[in-house]
Design a protein around this nucleic acid. Structure first.
Lengths: 189, 189
DNA sequence: CTCTTCAATTGATTACAATCAAGAAATCAA
DNA sequence: TTGATTTCTTGATTGTAATCAATTGAAGAG
């Protein structure tokens, strides 16, 4: 299972787990195929898994009256979840939708907690969960508001997103209208 | 130590710890007085503690070229820390400054991890850490941009902040200028 | 208590992104 | 492949928050 190797690699960046421990962890994983436009999570569901993206991409967003508000994108070799719902065990405000046909490996929070009881070194999996997303950066870029600056910031930090996700979604992520994004792109390129 | 009672109460909201466990936890706490304008954390320091606010308030902010950008406020009976620096063990981008003379009880992340090794029920302390702040809500309110709406949202959710923190800081938190905030207030009241 | 400094208000002007609208391009379904 | 639907681009206009500026008000130092 070469796909588990990638997962083990990400685990080793947070803690020097033994091969044995890694095996115990990966044994808890379930592989799943998710078709484009299918949901990993819907509003009001309580999120109780985290998923490693083997292939494909996802988008976390909220539905407002007449819009979708994109909070975050996730691509392969990263973990995806709704941290807030997961940790607070609350119904989610968000949708997590596959933007492409994707393959993921999921593990439940319960399993993670059980692993922690088996062996304290698994406590380090917390960092894994905590790593999921720190939107602080997003908050500051939103407030340093110039659309051009925000787009440049994206170009610098997540250049791959730009050709991978529809501009409507990128615009929503940046907190601007699609028209403005189009003009920003014309201006900058 | 009646101040520890408040802390125990917050712990019990996340997990039914025994009185004995609560004692083990509170024994790790150190009490500190922090004067107004003193720092709990400065930029580039690695945050390795979390602090319970017994009395007073704090502000987490970034310094930009010529501005301060307020990310979050914290008041008594809540935990304060820089989640990102804490979990990723990275130099912080932020300052955490006392807005008033304050009294806190701190515990190191190391101590928390040690507790987890002693007894797996302490693994539940993760939720404590995770609880620190979920800025997702902030992101959506920033994008649903009308200053009036943002202020109303604040009035609804954190009315106490409004008379407690300077309007410059509130404005920065809302991502608007002080002038605009002043006008919003005149409009709404 | 007074003086100084910093914060908040109010006004006038400007800049710029949202909105409205229409056409071009790309994506999707049959 | 074709047609239908959605997304993207480009233009013209409008609304609104930022900026600049001046005054009032509050807080802090001595």
């Amino acid at each position: 299972m070469t796909e588990f190797e990638e997962i083990k690699k990400t685990l080793l960046t947070i803690y020097p787990f033994s091969e044995e421990h890694l095996k115990i962890f990966t044994d808890k994983l379930s592989l799943k195929e998710i078709k484009k436009k299918d949901f990993l999570l819907k509003q009001n569901q309580i999120c109780n898994h985290i998923a490693f993206i083997i292939r494909g991409s996802f988008r976390l967003y909220q539905k407002t009256e007449q819009n979708e508000l994109t909070i975050q994108f996730f691509t392969e070799k990263n973990w995806v979840s709704d941290l807030e719902s997961l940790m607070l065990k609350q119904p989610s405000k968000n949708y997590i939708e596959a933007n492409e046909n994707s393959k993921i490996a999921t593990i439940s929070l319960l399993d993670i907690h059980n692993l922690m009881e088996i062996d304290s070194s698994f406590s380090m999996l917390n960092s894994l969960i905590a790593n999921l997303t720190f939107p602080t950066t997003q908050i500051s870029t939103l407030k340093l508001k110039s659309p051009d600056k925000r787009y440049e910031h994206l170009l610098l930090n997540n250049p791959d997103w730009i050709n991978r996700f529809p501009q409507m979604q990128i615009a929503s992520y940046l907190g601007i209208t699609p028209e403005t994004l189009s003009r920003v792109r014309a201006r900058i390129n």
